[in-house]
Amino acid sequence: MTAIDSGVTSAPDEAALAHDFQETISRNDRIEPRDWMPEGYRKTLVRQVAQHAHSEIIGMQPEGNWIGRAPSLRRKAILLAKVQDEAGHGLYLYSACETLGVSRQQLTEMLISGKQKYSSIFNYPTLSFADVGTIGWLVDGAAICNQVPLCRTSYGPYGRSMIRICKEESFHQRQGYELLMTMMRGTDEQRAMVQESVDRFWWPALMMFGPPDNDSPNTAQSMEWGIKRNTNDELRQKFVDMSMPQAEALGVTFPDPELRWNAERGHYDFGQPDWDEFMQVVKGNGPCNAQRIEHRRRAHEDGAWVRAAATAYAARGPLVEEAAQRPSRDRGAA
């Protein structure tokens, strides 16, 4: 995009720019790509949006694992649509991130070289078909808790991507819950499969909200900038409160002996996930880290010839037959 300088402005000094930026944030207005912004704001956003995008892209793999083995055409079509949505989410977010001044190539490179991370949840394997349901219900459910407040984030392109994404997430959660409901109406073996899956995913789902607030000192700055709207613990509590009645309706339990209603607080009390495990998984020592990155790298490298071919085709211009079909005004003065 090129911009025409209106010629009226003289370059304002940094303090005035910072003041304007802060005013925009305080008015609850959005920051747009070509506005001046503090370097810290830009960097924090790039890290958050890039890694959010990577999470969507890597997030296709655990469920993609079951597309070829879905038990019915109906389930296969649903799963395909869901995984395709996640690819779309990744693309919306990469676009938003690029408006901050990084290129798609750089982002891809930083993902497959492991310099940037993605959500730890996708480093757990999907061992049974019930996991497809549990991921939709709990993992996309947790994502909804995270993402709904982000629709009001202060950076315009990020917020707009989140609005699109949130519209699609509710399909993800409902198809997962419905899948589990169907299995719960089946045999004892199927019910056991659902419970086993929920047992495996409950703690990793709670970890999705990040470490407790007193271990997240950056939260305050992000909230001041309007990038972040709720703390990790607030969101985790909200998720537990939402999930308990859903588990009861489904007929499953969560593997936490401390989980109980606290009438005084008006919330459920619950135990802490194993934060050492979380740190290990984020660092790259989870069950599937190497496999996820390797798969993404292979897809990128195997696709190189397709990208090269498309570039060559574009450079060559339209084919002769195509040109012949165009209206004559395209061919000059005729």
Binding site: S55, A142, G210, T231, N232
Partner: peptide, 19 residues
């Protein structure tokens, strides 16, 4: 780590931006 990596917590410290 921020929870608001959408699909889960992601680190915000010591991560290169490419800017």
């Amino acid at each position: 780590y921020t929870a608001e990596g959408g699909h889960g917590a992601v680190p915000l410290k010591d991560v290169p931006t490419g800017l």
